[in-house]
Computed example of a mutant assay.
Amino acid sequence: MTSPPPASPELTGLPDGELLRLDHQVCFSLQAASRAFGGVYREALKELGLTYPQYLAMMVLWEHGPLPVRSIGERLHLDSGTLSPLLKRLEVAGLVRRERSARDERSVVVHLTDAGAGLRERALPVPRTILAATGLSVEEVLALQETLGRLTASLSQAG
Rank of each mutant, 00 (worst) to 15 (best):
G17C: 04
R70Q: 13
L67H: 12
V92F: 11
H77K: 10
L20R: 06
E74I: 08
T152L: 10
M59Q: 15
D79T: 02
W62R: 01
F28Q: 09
E91R: 15
L124N: 07
A32P: 01
V69E: 08
G94F: 04
T113S: 07
G135L: 01
L95V: 02
S84R: 14
A7E: 14
P4I: 05
E99W: 05
S8N: 02
A44F: 13
A93M: 08
A93Y: 07
G149K: 06
R42T: 09
S154T: 14
G135N: 05
E99T: 07
L136I: 00
R75A: 09
A158L: 15
V126I: 10
G39E: 07
D16M: 05
G94R: 05
E91A: 15
V26L: 15
R122F: 02
A158R: 15
R35I: 08
R75F: 02
R98S: 12
L151V: 08
D104N: 14
G94C: 02
R35Y: 12
Y41Q: 03
V141L: 06
L86D: 08
A158S: 14
Q25E: 08
A158I: 09
E91W: 10
S84E: 11
G159W: 10
S137I: 02
H64F: 15
Q157R: 15
G159C: 07
L90V: 01
C27D: 14
A33Y: 06
S101W: 03
E10A: 13
P4E: 11
V69W: 00
C27L: 13
L61M: 03
S107V: 14
A117R: 15
P4H: 13
S80A: 13
K46Q: 12
V108Y: 05
G73P: 08
S3A: 14
E63Y: 03
L48I: 01
D16Q: 06
A57D: 05
L112K: 10
L136F: 07
L78N: 01
V96Q: 06
L148A: 06
H64R: 15
G13L: 02
D104P: 03
V126D: 01
Q145Y: 04
E10P: 00
A33E: 09
S156F: 09
R122N: 04
A36M: 03
Q54F: 08
G94S: 04
V69M: 11
G39Y: 02
L11Q: 15
A93K: 15
A44L: 11
L20P: 00
D16G: 04
P5L: 12
V109F: 01
K88W: 11
L78W: 06
L76Q: 14
R70E: 13
S29V: 09
M59H: 12
A133I: 00
G13F: 04
G65H: 07
L148W: 12
Y55L: 05
S71M: 04
